[in-house]
Amino acid sequence: MQAALFYGLSIVAIMCACGVVVSRNPIHSVLFLILTFFSISGHYILMNAQFIALVNIIVYAGAIMVLFLFVVMLLNLNKESEPHKSDLVKIIAATSAGLFSLVLVGVLKGATLPAYEGMMDSENGLVKNLGRVLFQEFLLPFELSSILFLSAMVGAVLLGKKNVQA
């Protein structure tokens, strides 16, 4: 049952991820990306990490992707107005992506990954345990990353403001 779910979700995730890259219409790409996030959330639920699964949906699928869609719709990008890259750029991009995937395969082949079955009953992803770990073991990195976000927000507001006096 769990293996079947795992393979089903993985196939959906990979297909949608390919759809993001392949589709010509940017709106379709964004919608495929949303489906990818949903299938990844399914994987989190399989690993009993309900909190992370839902936060993934709320933050990525629900907020960030809405903004992506928003911008794409506002700019009204479509295949007619999309500038086509030259062949040289395409060849370079394909070569570097291929080399990168080669490196990834090489790294993953040698690595010993923990068994997937073992993770299914783990309690690490539950709110209680996750909160304990975040606020005891990793308190400083957690707070620092929130300050990082705050500074990014302040920076964005500052850049978006008109007539800033230097």
Partner: peptide, 10 residues
Amino acid sequence: ILYVFGVVSI
């Protein structure tokens, strides 16, 4: 509660 937020956000 988070589930409700998730549904609202999509």
